[in-house]
Design a protein around this nucleic acid. Structure first.
Length: 614
DNA sequence: CCCCCCCC
């Protein structure tokens, strides 16, 4: 039986000299797992025989590890080696070794149907060419591809992406002929490696300026079958590599610096990250290799997000059930003009969440067809007790990706999911749409610090004890939605620093501050114009006009608010001012007391206190 | 060496 498959005697001697042999037939005489770092994907070493010689420095590329794992390569198995590379490695100052890596193979005869053929002996070391290749020199160069082209060396002249400044590297060098290491095996202690990775995401070029200097940077996410890694280039390296990198393309990459990733800022699943340097070599890989995966997701159902901490980075897939227009507004904190678009994503957990796209992402998005939206690396945010998602610059957003989860969702949505009532976990006030809880002022003041750091929402029936008249009115920018205080230029013009221009007019706006009391205590609270107007029973404009006519009138107006009672929806949040932490309470909504509702609440509380609710 | 991703 084994006669049918004559081993290619002597093949290993040629191979270990760096030659290529077409489809040599060999016998596996043993295999073992290579001890590796914890982060490493497992690798297997083979004892190979060509019938005459034995080589123990043979490995499988990790893509075909399953052949060992599933028992296909038991001892004595006869294989045809269809694609392989050899490479000289020098690890840790010891003598050089040439290793043989099998990239593609076919089992000709299972090991249990034959036995060891011949009496092979270890290939003498003198027969192994361990001359260190100059930098990245290809072993194929020695045979010029004539013996065999099965490893498909790219013509040296074409499609080469290489840093011009790395001219010291042999331009005939092709990284593809090197041992390709899995991304998961990269670590800071080993710097001679080549990876083959798909660029799954690429940032824009960002400039920074801080106390330590300024510069520019860009980053990209690299992924292979073993894992992923974030890769960043700084300053002039940006100019060198930025344009040549295209998302979704596969590259051979070598000579980067590997350092420990700062997990605080890097959600890519790798303990390390890499930095592009001047010596870095990047070469595009042209043979489409399906073993290099597309984006890796770790999807979480939308309903689960309700219970995940704000700030966490997650992967989410959902149907874009609805989408807002692009909204433009000015950030109160930074004064910057922002653009956003909000999507409602729903999934089979019958939950929905608001996902916000920013800037360019917001403008580009087209969601009218209710597509599947997959997001890798969205950041969980919180507003009014509900959770939402922010699509960051580092997030990967894909529309209708061709992945099973996407097809499953489509099927669900188009066959009934569309009509399902979903729980919107972005709804204001925590607990998924529950009404704002009733707390007394004293209870609100005694909330645990971790709660008030995030903000506690509550409502209470309170009496206005004193509405402050000082500074309750200001002259605001007349532009719609810009509420910034303007500076009177004393020449009939009013300057808005936020809008950066002057206007001949302004708008009066109220800014309410009052002391309120309920049965438990009292509290200073502030509120914006819309709510202050409800308390005073006048519009900002009316108050402004009255004060302009007679400044003395202002105290009369604010005094009228005293002893009025309202249902106040508030947010209590800690605020640090001059190193002092204090509780800041903002009235979000002022409502007149609906006695029917309020009495129902009181009755419910009484029943609760009497233990009659259950 | 960045590390911002914003708003109600």
């Amino acid at each position: 039986m084994a006669d049918k498959f004559r081993l290619t005697e002597g093949a290993l001697r040629l191979i270990m000299k760096g030659d290529q042999i077409e489809d040599p037939i060999m016998q596996v005489l043993g295999s073992k797992r290579i001890a590796s770092t914890s982060a490493d994907k497992e690798r297997f070493r083979l004892l190979l025989s060509d019938g005459k010689y034995l080589v123990s420095f043979a490995m499988l590329t990790t893509q075909i590890n399953d052949k060992i794992v599933n028992g296909e390569l038991v001892d004595n198995t006869i294989i045809k080696v269809k694609r392989f590379i050899t490479s000289v490695i020098n690890s840790g100052g010891k003598s050089n070794k040439r290793v043989l890596v099998i990239l593609e193979m076919e089992t000709l005869l299972p090991g249990d149907q034959t036995e060891k053929i011949g009496n092979p002996e270890h290939l003498p070391e003198t027969d192994i060419d361990t001359e260190l290749d100059d930098s990245t020199t290809s072993n194929n160069a020695k045979t010029n591809g004539q013996v065999n082209s099965s490893s498909k060396p790219a013509p040296a002249s074409t499609n080469r992406i290489m840093s011009k400044k790395s001219a010291n590297v042999d331009l005939n060098a092709s990284l593809q002929d090197h041992v390709i290491l899995p991304i998961s095996s990269l670590n800071p202690y080993h710097n001679t490696w080549v990876i083959k990775a798909r660029v799954s995401n690429k940032s824009g070029i960002r400039k920074w300026s801080n106390s330590r200097g300024e510069g520019q940077l860009f980053s990209m996410d690299l992924v292979d079958e073993s894992g992923e890694i974030r890769c960043t280039g700084f300053r002039d390296v940006v100019d060198k590599f930025y344009d040549m990198i295209e998302v979704d393309k596969v590259y051979y990459i070598s000579k980067c610096v590997i350092k420990v990733a700062n997990k605080q800022f890097n959600s890519v699943k790798n303990d390390y990250e890499m930095t592009l340097i001047n010596d870095t070599i990047i070469q595009e890989c042209h043979d489409a290799d399906i073993a290099i995966p597309q984006t890796k997701y770790d999807f979480i159902n939308i309903d689960k997000i309700a219970n995940i901490e704000t700030g966490t980075i997650v992967d989410v897939i959902g149907i874009c059930k609805s989408v807002s227009e692009v909204l433009t507004f000015t950030a109160r904190s930074s004064g910057r003009e922002l653009k956003k678009r909000e999507l409602i994503l729903v999934d089979q957990s019958n939950s929905g969440i608001s996902a916000t796209l920013w800037g360019n992402d917001a403008e580009k998005f087209e969601g009218s067809s209710q597509p599947v939206v997959a997001i890798k690396g969205a950041k969980i945010g919180e507003f009014g007790g509900g959770k939402n998602l922010n699509i960051l610059g580092s997030s990967i957003l894909k529309i209708n990706p061709d992945i099973p989860e996407s097809h499953r969702l489509r099927g669900w949505f188009d066959n009934g999911g569309m009509q399902q009532n979903v729980t919107n976990i972005s709804a204001k006030s925590s607990g998924g749409g529950l009404q704002t809880p009733w707390l007394s002022l004293k209870e609100a003041q005694n909330q645990p610090s971790e709660s008030v750091e995030k903000g506690v929402y509550f409502q209470t029936k309170a009496t206005v004890l004193m509405f402050r008249s000082e500074n309750c009115l200001y002259k605001a920018c007349p532009t719609e939605d810009c509420k910034k205080k303007v500076v009177d230029m004393e020449n009939g013009m009013y300057n808005c620093e936020k809008c950066g221009r002057q206007y001949p007019n302004f708008k009066y706006r109220l800014l309410g501050s009052m002391n309120i009391g309920d049965w438990s205590g009292n509290q200073w609270v502030s509120m914006f114009a819309s709510e202050a107007e409800k308390v005073l029973g006048m519009t900002s404009e009316q108050v402004g006009e009255a004060a302009e006519a007679n400044p003395q009138a202002l105290t009369g107006i604010t005094d009228k608010a005293n002893f009025k009672q309202f249902i106040l929806k508030c947010r209590a949040k800690t605020d640090t001012f001059n190193d002092e932490v204090r509780l800041k309470t903002v009235v979000i909504k002022v409502d007149n007391i609906n006695y029917k509702e309020y009495n129902a609440h009181l009755i419910s509380r009484i029943n609760e206190l009497q233990g009659m609710n259950n």
